[in-house]
Nucleic acid binder design. Sequence first.
DNA 1: ATGCCTGCGGTTCGCAGA
Length: 264
Amino acid sequence: MLIATFNVNSVRQRLEHLLRWLKLREPDLVCLQELKCLDEAFPRAEIEELGYQVETHGQKTFNGVALISKHPIEIEHRGLPGFEDEQARYIEGVVSIPAGSNQPGSALRIASIYFPNGNPIPGPKFDYKRAFMAALTDHARRLLTFEEPLVLAGDYNVIPEPRDARYPENWSGDALFQPESRSDFRKLCALGFTDAVRATSDDPGLYSFWDYQAGAWQRNNGIRIDHLLLSPLAADRLMETGIDKAMRAEDKPSDHVPVWCRLR
DNA sequence: ATGCCTGCGGTTCGCAGA
C-alpha cells in the first residue's frame, strides 16, 4: 500500500508530470495540493484512465486539494470540520482496502491537507496559519479516538527541525520556521502521530521543496515541508518511505516533489 | 537591499507562493 503526497503547483500545468509519475511509481493513494483550479477544470478523465478514483476539493486560482485512489474511497469531509474557511485546503476520506492473500479487508482514513504559508510575520496570514493548525489538531484528536489506520498527508508549510533545511539560518524570519509553527507541529505529533520519513531516516538533506528562485535546486537549497503523519495503527504498518526528488530536475517541474510511504 | 521564478487572472502587471 503506497501512499504519497504531492504539491503539484497547478494540476493543469503539471498533468504530464503527474501522469508520468503515476505510471512509474504506481501509488495506491495520492494526496494532491495546490490544484489551482475549480473541480470542473480538474483533468479527471486522464487520471481515471490509469485506474484511479478521483475526488477533488478545488478552488479558482489558489489552493485546492484532491485524493486519488486505486481502491474505493468515500469522502467524509471537504473542508476542515469546525473551521469556517473560504480556502480549499482539506479533504478527508476512508479507503476500503480489499482482502489480500494473507490478510482480511480493512479501512484506512486519509486526509490531503494544504496548510497556510503564514508569511509575512507577524500579521493576519500568520494568525490564520496558527488557527488552521489549531483546528486541524482538534480534529485530529477526535479522529484518533476511532483507533483506525489514519494518515494526515500534505504540504504542512512547516520545517520541523534545523536538519530539515539546507540553510536553516535563511529561514529564521520565515513563517515556515517560526518557533510557534514548529511548536504547533510538535503538538500535533505529540497526540500520537509518527512523521513517516523521520521514523525511517535520520539523514540530513531530506528535502521536498526547492524554491524556483536563485538556483535553489542547483545549489540544493531545499527544505522538508511535505509530511506524512501516521496514527499508531498506521505507524505499526510502516515499511519504508521515499522522496522522488528526481522530479525536481524535470522540465517545468513543481517546486515540490512527491513524498511517499509504504504500509504493509 | 532587493529580487531572483512560476502560475493565475486578465490583460502585459499585481498578487501569492515559500
